[in-house]
């Protein structure tokens, strides 16, 4: 089975600086929360084995720098992503507003096969903190408007909903892979188009 070949799921976490990307990743992979994380420079990743239905897959979760200026670096890391996690801070409205640009930028840089259906997951982090600036409803509305992106409200500190969110991320990433494998299998055809010209010449000459 072609889809079985690749069992590595590449997941990219994006979002404004300080929304808790590193914390979420570490909470999920190491089940630890620390308030000692520094601002991420460059990129880091952790891997974790996850069971999705009957399959065990390895998730490679990439944590990125939050400042949008460093997005230009992203292209090296975004390539081949299977799922993109957009994180915002429910207490900071700006982090929510910037989701649009993070999503667009990702689609530009990663250039997935099928941008319309590329799996995103949105996480509203820091729900343990008060006051809420972004209501659940508002976040859900945005997600619905973007082709029904799944939305989770999490707290990396309290380990709230993190497991469920990443389970869903794994599932979506896997579906993306299954999907792209089909797409990739069609890839050789455009190449064969260029071959048709010489072949035609060959036909006219031979026989």
């Amino acid at each position: 089975m072609a889809t079985r070949k690749k069992v590595l799921l590449k997941v990219i976490i994006l979002g404004e600086s300080g929304v808790g990307k590193t914390s979420l990743m570490n909470q999920y992979v190491n089940r630890k929360f620390s308030n000692q994380y520094k601002a991420t420079i460059g990129a880091d990743f952790l891997t974790k084995e996850v069971q999705v239905d009957d399959r065990i897959v390895t998730m490679q979760i990439w944590d990125t720098a939050g400042q949008e200026r460093f997005q230009s670096l992203g292209v090296a890391f975004y390539r081949g992503a299977d799922c993109c996690v957009l994180v915002f801070d429910v207490t900071a409205p700006n982090t929510f507003k910037s989701l649009d640009s993070w999503r667009d930028e990702f689609l530009v840089q990663a250039a997935p096969q099928d941008p319309e259906n590329f799996p995103f997951v949105v996480l509203g982090n820091k729900v343990d903190l008060e006051p809420r600036a972004i209501s659940t409803k508002r976040a859900q509305q945005w997600c619905q408007s973007k082709n029904n992106i799944p939305y989770f409200e999490t707290s990396a500190k309290e380990a709230l909903n993190v497991e469920q969110a990443f389970q869903s991320i794994a599932r979506n990433a896997l579906s993306q892979q299954n999907h792209t494998v089909d797409l990739y299998s069609e890839l050789p055809e455009p190449i064969s188009l260029t071959k048709t010209a010489p072949r035609n010449n060959g036909d006219s000459c031979a026989c």
Binding site: P93, E130, P131, R132, A133, I134, S135, K137, R138
Partner: peptide, 26 residues
């Protein structure tokens, strides 16, 4: 921020509004 929150609370469902208001003040 005050504006945004005011907007948010006015936009949100009526039963949510009151507690949120308090939360904001806090």
């Amino acid at each position: 921020q005050a504006n945004a929150i005011a907007k948010l609370s006015s936009g949100s469902a009526s039963q949510e509004a009151a507690p949120e208001q308090i939360g904001r003040e806090l």
